[in-house]
């Protein structure tokens, strides 16, 4: 399958001297449901910020859908959908109006924006809140609206950064149903980061493990589990902890040497 996201030798150093990405290389194939795992501070958010053009890289290359984000900023924004960690909603605007405005902002005609809004309101079960101001929604519904806004323009690649934080179990199930449909029916590439590894285990098929600004594993989730343990019964959660433990032990051993 063709690579959708190609990252090559990417580096990023912050002004305080922290080197968040250290020559990171990664490929995500078109139509993949990909999850990026790693501890806090490993570089996940920095990588997403660079890939979504929020941050400039220091060195290296990357492309998304064959587009060069540095030269084709407008095209890349149409190609991507981004649901960041924090909700990005206008609290003073009604749910329906926010979605319609978002559609128009991406060049949809008013009827198309309205029709897409209808689809998303139904998909995310926001019908009864359509005329309510976004600011008065519950935390879970704000999160749903936030994710729906990222989908209005039918992006080819969807970045989801901790998307289900604040959602109740029912809302989560509904959310993953929508995302899975998008991935399977529309072949949308999903780039996910989450600390809920059961969700990643259930929904994603490929993954990478980032440690200290470098990718230390890149492949299938099944392959990752097999790498950690020959036993097939381990969950992604357990495999993750085991992997971290083995790395810490390796570092301790190296240190004592």
């Amino acid at each position: 399958m063709e690579a959708e996201i190609i990252v090559s030798s990417l580096t990023k150093r912050y002004s305080n001297g922290t080197e968040a990405l250290k020559g990171l290389t990664l490929d995500v194939k078109r139509g993949d449901f990909f999850v990026l795992l790693g501890q806090n501070g490993a570089g996940k958010s920095t990588l997403i910020k660079v890939l979504t053009t929020l941050l400039d890289k220091d060195a290296g290359h990357f492309s998304i859908g064959g587009l060069n984000p540095e030269q084709q900023k407008t095209e890349i924004q149409r190609y991507l959908g981004v649901a960041s960690q924090e909700n990005e909603i206008d609290p003073g605007e009604k749910v329906e109006n926010l979605l319609i405005f978002q559609g128009k902002l991406f060049g949809l005609s008013t009827p198309d924006a309205k029709s897409r809004t209808e689809e998303l309101i139904n998909a995310f079960q926001l019908s009864e809140y359509r005329s309510k101001k976004a600011g008065i929604l519950s935390g879970g519904n704000k999160r749903k609206l936030h994710c729906a806004l990222a989908l209005v323009h039918r992006p080819h690649v969807l970045f989801l950064d901790e998307p289900t934080v604040g959602m109740d179990p029912l809302a989560r199930a509904n959310f993953w149903e929508v995302i899975n449909q998008l991935n399977k029916k529309e072949q949308t590439t999903i780039f996910l980061t989450t600390q809920y590894l059961d969700e990643a285990d259930k929904n994603a098929n490929t993954m990478a493990f980032i440690l200290d600004g470098k990718i230390v594993y890149d492949g299938t989730i099944h392959g990752f589990k097999s790498l950690v343990s020959k036993s097939d019964s381990m969950s992604l959660d357990e495999s993750y902890l085991e992997f971290i433990k083995s790395f810490s032990e390796q570092n301790t051993t190296n240190y004592s040497k």
Binding site: T52, L54, T74, Q77, R78, L80, V82, S84, E86, N87, E88, I89, D90, P91, G92, Q102, L105, F106, G107, L149, A150
Partner: peptide, 17 residues
């Protein structure tokens, strides 16, 4: 207001210049 609510980031991710 947009910066405080985080909505500015949503606008930033749009094709608007």
């Amino acid at each position: 207001a947009d910066m405080q609510s985080g909505y500015f980031k949503r606008l930033y991710f749009s094709p608007a210049s």
